[in-house]
Design a protein around this nucleic acid. Sequence first.
DNA 1: GTCGCTTCTGCGACAATTCGCAGGTGCGAG
DNA 2: CTCGCACCTGCGAATTGTCGCAGAAGCGAC
Lengths: 159, 159
Amino acid sequence: MSGPTAGTGGAASREELAARLRGAGQRVTAQRLVMLEALRPGEHLSADEVFARVEPQLPGVCRSTVYRTLELFRDLGLVSETDLGGGVRQFEPIDGRHHHLVCRACGDQLALDDIVIEPLRQAIRQRHGFVAEIDHLAVFGLCVYCAEEARAVAAGDDR
Amino acid sequence: MSGPTAGTGGAASREELAARLRGAGQRVTAQRLVMLEALRPGEHLSADEVFARVEPQLPGVCRSTVYRTLELFRDLGLVSETDLGGGVRQFEPIDGRHHHLVCRACGDQLALDDIVIEPLRQAIRQRHGFVAEIDHLAVFGLCVYCAEEARAVAAGDDR
DNA sequence: GTCGCTTCTGCGACAATTCGCAGGTGCGAG
DNA sequence: CTCGCACCTGCGAATTGTCGCAGAAGCGAC
């Protein structure tokens, strides 16, 4: 994928990021601009994958910087950080909010629409005045099939 | 606390755990019994703290075992695993469900009652048949004060 | 009580993430 | 344009968490 990265093709432009950083009293650096462009909506990337992707353009960049910048972006609300349970955290630019249901038994993943989360956000807001940033939630549990199986086992039907 | 650990004093007794393990086709071992007793309701412990606590009673126990057993307990629904954002996961026996609101700006933590979460659990159940195990959720965001401050800054009131 | 199968555990290696520090650099002040 | 401070970055080391394997141990069968 070495095609022309061509122009301003992206949801978040360099200038938007620069403005965002300035507004937060942060500095605009090459590392941050490159890292922002390495992230594309709809892709879940591990910190290591981000590292691999930006390294060619940032000779000598180290993992610490990747982690720190990702953390910064997250605090700025630009990317979401999610633990899907595989020992590696996933990062993704926030485009549209979406969530996951992860089955603890079979590992299957289902998509969960943000509509289901919105009421929770509002309830928290009303009760505590707390502004919840739930952009990419992973809910663990049992899927329909595994839940039924577990129920059968619990009932003593051990086969 | 080297006092008499005296008898059956605890929410989960050894026998309950033994039965639970057997029911799930798991084996009852000394490590598991000791680890269960090391966890006390209301305390958030890191894996390392659990390790330190059980080591005196289990000479030669290693970290892998602690992690594996904690994972097992979690899958059995005995303990909850939560990332409070400090780079270390916290474990706690599930006594009553409770949750946390963690402010990204000032680090303050508020308690969140399970009543607020229950509707979400039901919505997920109805929509997807998925049984969500939300026992100890950490919701990140901005507390009342920091949210107001952020609003002021965003409005250009940069002081 | 003994045997044997299967599951657990300890161990060591490895991968993922965080931390402290010294030097480099953005950016506002003058 | 230059100066200087504070923030960023790269580096290396320390932590935290995961994995595969060989031996130990639990538990049901006999």
